[in-house]
């Protein structure tokens, strides 16, 4: 079984700052980490590898520095990594990103399962996974918390939704986006770390992927950011005082007036 995990580098969420003038993320001088949800995707793939044996390839689209993120996943036990890097990919929205990533998966050819994190913590769109599934024309399941590979040719997965859990069966090849409940990411192993240090990570650009420049990067993006702004802070705070009973009654009346359903 060949599993491809798609990862993204994001600013370390512990140190995120917004530029007050441009309202965009300050990326300079901020350490990059692998998107935490993508770490669950890597862990999910490695768990399958531990149990049934599988080849795990990790792929990311990004600047040359993104190779370090790939190296980190090799340290965890991924077999191979591919960096998609080209000036023509700059400014990609989710669609252009999905186009580029799917082209890489097509180029690999023998992929059985694609795993992505449920969303990236910087953009928070959760679109790239499903878009790739559409482009590759494979079935997909989002918010997966458990993966069962017992049936050959199929995956049985458990999805976590707001309404409860769902068990789905998907025919391979298939794509999954995964959530935290899949399991805490492992720590690297010394052997894998040593191998990762020396590993040569191939870089595929627009030529290797055989893509038309008009379909990638800024020119391949349907979304254009017209303006970014911080929403105005709303501060109609009320303070309830008096006995607990009175406070509860006052809160109840307030919610009732606000037409909260069911009151």
């Amino acid at each position: 079984m060949h599993i491809v995990v798609c990862i993204k580098q994001v600013p370390d969420t512990k140190n995120v700052r917004i530029d007050p003038d441009t309202h965009t993320l300050v990326r300079q001088g901020v350490e990059s980490i692998i998107n935490p949800f993508d770490m669950f995707a890597v862990e999910g793939a490695l768990k399958i590898k531990d149990q049934n044996g599988a080849r795990v390839t990790v792929v990311t689209m990004g600047p040359p520095q993104a190779a370090e993120a790939l190296r980190e996943t090799l340290g965890l036990g991924a077999d191979d990594a591919v960096l998609l890097s080209d000036r023509a990919f700059a400014g990609s929205d989710t669609w252009a990103t999905s186009t580029t990533l799917s082209a890489a998966i097509r180029k690999m050819g023998d992929v059985d399962v694609i795993i992505c994190g449920k969303q990236a913590v910087d953009g928070d769109t959760a679109q790239v996974g499903p878009e790739m599934a559409a482009l590759l024309d494979v079935p997909y399941a989002t918010f997966v918390k458990k993966i069962d590979t017992e049936d050959s040719g199929f995956l049985k997965v458990v999805r976590q939704t707001d309404e409860g859990t769902e068990v789905w069966k998907l025919q391979l090849p298939a794509l999954l986006t995964v959530i935290k409940e899949l399991g805490e990411p492992r720590v690297p192993s010394l052997r894998h770390k040593m191998r990762a240090k020396k590993a040569e990570i191939p870089v595929w650009g627009i030529a290797e992927l055989g893509l038309d420049p008009s379909s990638t990067g800024l020119s391949g993006s349907f979304t254009q950011v017209v303006r970014v702004f911080s929403p105005q802070r709303r501060s109609n705070r009320i303070q309830l005082e008096g006995s607990i009973e009175n406070q509860a009654e006052e809160l109840f009346q307030y919610l009732k007036k606000a037409r909260v359903p069911g009151l």
Binding site: V187, P188, L190, K193, M194, K197
Partner: peptide, 18 residues
């Protein structure tokens, strides 16, 4: 050496996170 630094890095990560 590189390898010794890796041992430090790895054990430090385990100490900190786990």
């Amino acid at each position: 050496t590189e390898e010794q630094k890796m041992i430090q890095e790895l054990t430090e990560q385990i100490a900190r996170e786990k």
